[in-house]
Design a protein around this nucleic acid. Structure first.
Lengths: 245, 245
DNA sequence: GAGCAGGTTTGATCTGCGTCAACATGGCAA
DNA sequence: TTGCCATGTTGACGCAGATCAAACCTGCTC
């Protein structure tokens, strides 16, 4: 087993799926109490991943998917020449590792951007359980499908939006997900660098920085390092809907 | 039922999954003969879609996924202001409609680029069958996962490649899929316009056209309208691996 | 076969973002 | 405290690809 795959910290769950506060944001959506306690048998291991460490790397054998319990991740793909494409940022309740099912190897890297904890869901077991629990099966399919739809959204960002539109969409997306987790929709800390934002949005870090400055000048947001405050949600949304050429 | 959803031509399958020549390219991968005949019960309806017609549209209720029997499709997403992002081109054996599972509505448009025929796979039935047939369940998960990985590839195209790299990657991809279907790897007809290629690659049609011309000047390909002949596969691949800035 | 429409090619020019470079800032270690 | 290093900001300039424009194919219809 490659060194980076050895669980850095493994613990029998002190808290099970049935008691997890993430509830509706994670896998157990729509399960009965009875079914939930079955899920507790499926998910028995958590893994701690410190900031900067990999949860998995491209080419690692695929064995499990991961539900983020706490923390924040990025996934990326590297080209031989060193160019990096960040394919997504993931927060609590979101599922990592779906890319590995098709080839039985992971096809991207998952890196913790802050100290994090994930629930390990052995994939073979998940398939077994989901043959018995229709609601689990169906919800898992929804999770995969939403990942596809999310990717389409990123393609739109990259394919047809200009720099400021991309950044506005990015901020609004973070805002919305922050709110869904019970945090402020208008104030949050970025976990990623300008470079990583740029890589995600298909821009250079200088362009990201300039766009932040311009948004601030226009009173749309207040930026202080990684701290972002959205001052004018409508203004950001307007950036998205109106094409000025 | 919206007019465009009414099946344009529905026929009981003259040829079942168990007899379909697509075999390993489509859903029935890895099924036993016994399981294959169960699949025949799942997939009993085909639908004909003429060139230019929609198989489904964004916002249509999601009921089924579709396996392409013959033909060629594009999927795209439209922004309110009319901008279009083509999210993919699909050929025989590939599965359409996975985007709809998560929200129970389709989230993109699927348009036939030539007269086509698809096998209708009612999604609820698929979930039922795949609870009984483990190999079907697993293969379906692989199909979804590969779609996610494919999308990551498109993000790389759009995020970090330059125009000529994008087009080279596009041509090599078409070549490889053409070969997988038993056709020539070096000679094929494009089913889409320059504009659609551009939309997929995040470029304008003029840029696509110029890149084609340059490839032709350099002896990499021969272009005649929609007919493409790849003269130098290695040369195209080299374009991808070497970054010259 | 004239005329038309949709698609394509090619040239000239423009521009948004990349590139390069200098400097600022903040966290951390010694 | 001091200095260092990673990260971020800002300015000047250049270029890949967009935009604008004109002409050209190919297959239709009438």
């Amino acid at each position: 087993m490659p060194a980076h795959l050895v669980p850095l910290a493994v613990s029998t769950l002190p808290e099970s799926c049935s008691q997890c506060s993430l509830g509706e944001l994670c896998l157990p959506v729509g399960l009965s109490n009875n079914e939930l306690s079955q899920l507790d048998q499926l998910v028995t291991v958590r893994r701690r991943v410190l900031r900067g460490q990999h949860l998995y790397r491209g080419d690692d054998p695929f064995e499990a998917i991961y539900a983020i319990k706490t923390g924040f991740f990025k996934t990326d793909v590297l080209l031989e020449d060193g160019r990096e494409q960040v394919t997504g940022f993931q927060m609590a309740g979101e599922i990592l590792g779906l890319d590995g099912i098709g080839t039985e190897k992971h096809t991207c890297n998952a890196v913790a951007l802050e100290d994090s904890e994930v629930c390990v869901i052995p994939f073979h077991d998940l398939e077994n359980y989901s043959r018995e629990i229709g609601a689990l099966q169906h919800h898992f399919h929804k999770v995969m499908s939403r990942e596809i739809v999310r990717d389409h959204g990123v393609m739109m960002l990259l394919g047809i939006m200009r720099a400021e539109e991309r950044l506005a969409a990015f901020l609004l997306n973070l805002s919305q997900r922050s709110m869904a987790r019970g945090y402020s929709a208008t104030e949050f800390n970025l976990r990623m660098t300008r470079n990583e934002i740029g890589s995600y949005l298909g821009l250079k870090l200088e362009t990201v920085s300039r766009a932040f400055s311009r948004f601030q000048d226009e009173g749309l947001i207040a930026v202080n390092q990684k701290h972002i405050q959205i001052l004018n949600v409508a203004g950001l949304k307007k950036l998205l809907s109106e094409r000025r050429t």
